[in-house]
């Protein structure tokens, strides 16, 4: 068992996220092989790679939807490898989903309220929130931040696709996030909506970092300062957006010689 001193010194290493030798097997198939990755607090990184490169599996291991077959995952210095998802979320991790994972039977307000409630106390409370409840206020502010105030009392099932993508981001911003995983937030958005997304991402407070999976280079490379390329479940290359864009091997493999 870790002593308090060990835990404190581990926390002092100051990486927001640290993966060491993470491997995920599905039967005989290796979805992730020996991933070692560290992200500093406040760092914004893109994870690129073709379909099946293991990007979403990587996210699922980090959030705890899957337990890795081997390797360790540290969040702000703390070993969370065996933690269930909710324990990682309560420590400041957030994520969005490639395919919107919302609550269609509830209103926009209730969706965001739940996200705020999930990372605070009183999850089992029988007491109804009053309209001036701090969490209700926080939810309303978040809804405003993602430009959904006009549909605040609508059921999520009635929202347009673009609005659902915006709500998806709002859920990940609830509470006090310290590190966010964005899984293809621009998927299926129109050019205008993409511009709006880039604006939301770049205007996020600088004290928390994120990893973004994104196929659209115009979105991905504009909002990050470092890039990790994945291929067949392995890390293939790491570098700045400029290095990755100009790397001949990357162009060969992923950009198809041209500019995507």
């Amino acid at each position: 068992m870790d002593s308090i001193a060990q835990r404190l010194s581990a926390a002092g290493t100051n990486n927001a996220l640290e993966l060491r030798g993470v491997t995920k097997m599905f039967g005989a198939l290796a979805a992730l092989t020996d991933i070692t990755l560290s992200v500093k607090p406040g760092e914004r990184r893109a994870v690129l790679g073709s379909n099946g490169a293991g990007k979403t599996t990587l996210f699922n291991c980090i959030t705890g939807d899957f337990l890795p077959s081997s390797g360790t995952i540290r969040l702000f210095g703390e070993d969370v490898t065996e933690f269930p998802p909710q324990e990682r979320i309560r420590r400041g991790l957030r994520r969005t989903y490639q395919i919107s994972a919302l609550f269609p039977g509830l209103t926009v307000r209730d969706n965001v309220y739940l996200a705020c409630r999930g990372v605070s106390r009183g999850r089992f409370s029988f007491i109804r929130p009053r309209f001036n409840d701090p969490l209700v206020q926080a939810a309303e502010n978040l809804i405003e931040a993602v430009h959904l105030t006009g549909v605040i009392d609508r059921l999520v099932a009635e929202l347009s696709y673009g609005q659902q993508r915006q709500l998806e981001i709002a859920l990940a911003l609830a509470g006090a996030p310290r590190f966010i995983l964005f899984d293809e937030p621009a998927a299926g958005l129109s050019p205008t909506e993409r511009a709006e997304l880039v604006e939301i991402l770049t205007s996020l407070p600088t004290h928390f970092g994120f990893i973004i999976i994104e196929h659209d280079m115009d979105v991905a490379l504009r909002v990050v300062e470092s890039v990790t390329m994945m291929h067949n479940g392995r890390i293939f290359k790491e570098g700045t957006p400029q290095e990755i864009e100009s790397d001949p091997e990357v162009q060969e493999l992923y950009l198809g010689g041209g500019h995507g």
Partner: peptide, 16 residues
């Protein structure tokens, strides 16, 4: 009701 609609997301929001 959130658990009914999407249990996986509820865990990813901090709920057990």
């Amino acid at each position: 009701q959130g658990v009914r609609d999407n249990p996986r997301r509820m865990a990813a929001l901090g709920f057990n």
